[in-house]
């Protein structure tokens, strides 16, 4: 029961946050009008209950770590700093391969050793957004199967694929 309530609470906080962000500047109570605040709470409650049912049906357990603002701050720093830089590099590399057609694709396996679902999600998404790599699958032991557009090494170490991202993922979701 506790886990279900936590899932509903997480969904409620997130939908409330996004609703308030989208309607900021509509009134005089802080930034919102009275009607918007009432509607925000009502809609978030509905969304949270529905999301809770879906989570239960699919067997998903969202982590309460998502509610920690410090993790979000870290994620923000990570997204603006190292991730954005790597994305720029990734795009220049893919652009080069698009134009020259010089590719040597393959699927390689890396084992960064991440335990939590949140950390794995952050790392998998980062890998997909960065130089020539695309996460295809993650198994239960935490091995990542990555499609690499130019295979330089058939048995790569995690650092060759994701650089410092595994460290960041552990920091954000560990």
């Amino acid at each position: 029961m506790g886990e279900e309530m936590a899932a509903v609470a997480i969904a409620f906080v997130f939908s409330l946050f996004f609703y308030l962000l989208l309607t900021a500047g509509t009134g005089s109570i802080l930034l919102w009008s009275k009607a918007e605040l009432v509607v925000a709470v009502l809609f978030s409650a509905v969304v949270a209950v529905v999301a809770g049912k879906i989570y239960k049906g699919l067997g998903i357990r969202p982590s309460a770590k998502l509610l920690n603002p410090l993790r979000w701050l870290l994620l923000l720093i990570y997204a603006i700093g190292p991730l954005f830089f790597q994305m720029a590099k990734a795009n220049l590399e893919v652009a080069y391969r698009v134009i020259t057609g010089n590719i040597k694709p393959g699927i390689v396996k890396i084992s960064p050793g991440l335990k939590t679902g949140l950390a794995r999600t952050v790392l998998a998404n980062s890998i997909t957004l960065t130089p020539g790599t695309l996460t295809i699958d993650v198994d239960r032991k935490g091995n990542f199967y990555v499609h690499w557009i130019y295979v330089r090494d058939k048995k790569p170490k995690p650092g060759e694929i994701c650089g410092s991202f595994a460290k960041w993922a552990r920091l954000i979701g560990g």
């Binding site: 040597k104 694709p105 393959g106 699927i107 396996k109 997909t128 295809i136 091995n143 499609h147």
Partner: peptide
């Protein structure tokens, strides 16, 4: 990620691949 995983599971093999660890697994 969802598209590539679905493609792999429905049996589409990567063309020209020099290595395919997922098939081994």
């Amino acid at each position: 990620h969802a598209i590539s995983r679905a493609a792999y599971r429905s049996g589409i093999k990567p063309g020209l691949a020099v290595v395919d660890e997922l098939r081994v697994a």
